[in-house]
Amino acid sequence: MQFLCLIYGTEGKDPQPGTEEFGAYMQEYETFSALCEQNGVLVNANALEPVATASTVTMENGKPEIMDGPFAETKEQLGGYYLLDCKDLDEALEYAAKIPTAKYGRVEVRPIMVFE
């Protein structure tokens, strides 16, 4: 079954571009992605641009209402995701724990809904 691993972090809390740690951090991501691919569990993965680039839209009275920024101003923001195909939750959690940002933020694991 497929699991979406949502990577949440506080922007600026994990290694930032230009710092010494950043290279190693990115390397960890590459290693992790390679591991997922090699084990045949990787469906898709992406990083998101910072939350400052977010726009939110709702339909009000049939018209789109557009706002600057994310829907909820929480401290932790969605920074990226992995869509993995695993045999069960335990396996998905095992992978999720290896996502480098898990050390600085948290990873929420959600099953993809299956319509019968």
Binding site: F3, D88, L89, A92
Partner: peptide, 14 residues
């Protein structure tokens, strides 16, 4: 059921 918690006895380190 929905979260995919398997009906197993974990093995190894787990």
């Amino acid at each position: 059921k929905l979260a995919g918690i398997s009906y197993i006895v974990p093995d190894g380190e787990m």
